[in-house]
Design a protein around this nucleic acid. Structure first.
Lengths: 166, 166
DNA sequence: GTTAATGCAAAACTTTTGCAAATTG
DNA sequence: CAATTTGCAAAAGTTTTGCATTAAC
């Protein structure tokens, strides 16, 4: 059996040159202009906090992070800004097993799948091109035009296995 | 490239000998006995309606179906019965992109993945063993003990592509 | 000065629980 | 009759919206 080539996304991210969100902010400004929306202080702070995140955040997570920087920021603004970030192509929404929407970076952050520990919630992001190819082939077989896909593997991580929490 | 072997679950289901839920009812009775729970009229109706479903149902869907047969059935009973069915190994819970829990048959109904049309919600169930193998290998690489996994491909189905709804 | 964005509060949803009354074994 | 289940109603949690006020262009 040929060895499995797994791209470890956290390693990949470490290798990326940090742009400190400069490009993303330009993308956001241009999207706002395109749809006739206005720039605002709150949207700045929310985007900035969102870009700091290394993993997915819920609207509520991001609300608390943004609010700790500026207590005047309300939940609805975070909620509505996340929708804008999605439209601008900066964020991607994923719904995991608990039914809560979470958002992760989409701009120059490649699609990946998740491995989640059901005991401690540790998350590993990975990418396997063979799986992507097979998904494409399934969609083609059924004559679907595939837009996106979600794959989550649930299990017990090595740490929890050791400490008998699993 | 070797041709992709896709097991079409709807075809598979048609081939299965219909048991009219006889076996499932026995499994449920035995599970109830095992956990010291009681049999009831409502649980009978709810299980029976659940077994009629060819695809996944939400708690609310099943509530309406059960209630149309017996208006005395309440939502909480459906909710709690679904939990029992899960514990008994008769139902499997899946959370799709809208964040709503849905339940599908688990007893002698093999694991499968979903292809969903984002325009008309048409659902295709399929199974590709190569994908399953790759998922196992990813979990092994990260030393996870995999419990279950979810894969959903979203796209536009051929009918919607034709009628320009996509 | 128009137009859009904000924050609050409240609505809309799904999911979950407390409890008196009814049903089961 | 003792124990569990039921249905209701209400709580809890997330997501979404209406609206008077504030901020952006």
């Amino acid at each position: 059996m040929t060895p499995l080539r797994v791209l470890d996304i956290s390693e990949y991210k470490k290798l990326q040159k940090p742009t400190r969100g400069r490009e993303e902010k330009v993308v956001f400004r241009e999207h706002l202009k395109k749809v006739g929306a206005k720039h605002s202080h709150q949207r700045d702070v929310i985007l900035d906090e969102f870009l700091k995140q290394r993993s997915h955040v819920s609207a509520d997570d991001l609300y608390h992070k943004a609010r700790s920087r500026d207590p005047r920021i309300g939940f609805s603004t975070v909620f509505r800004t996340l929708k804008l970030l999605k439209d601008a192509g900066l964020a991607r929404e994923v719904v995991l097993a608990d039914g809560i929407s979470r958002f992760e970076q989409n701009y120059k952050h490649p699609h990946h799948d998740h491995l989640i520990c059901t005991s401690c919630n540790k998350t590993v992001e990975f990418f396997v091109s063979e799986i992507e190819d097979l998904q494409e082939r399934v969609a083609k077989k059924y004559h679907f035009r595939m837009k996106n896909h979600v794959m989550v593997l649930y299990g017990i991580c090595p740490d929890c296995l050791k400490s008998d929490r699993g």
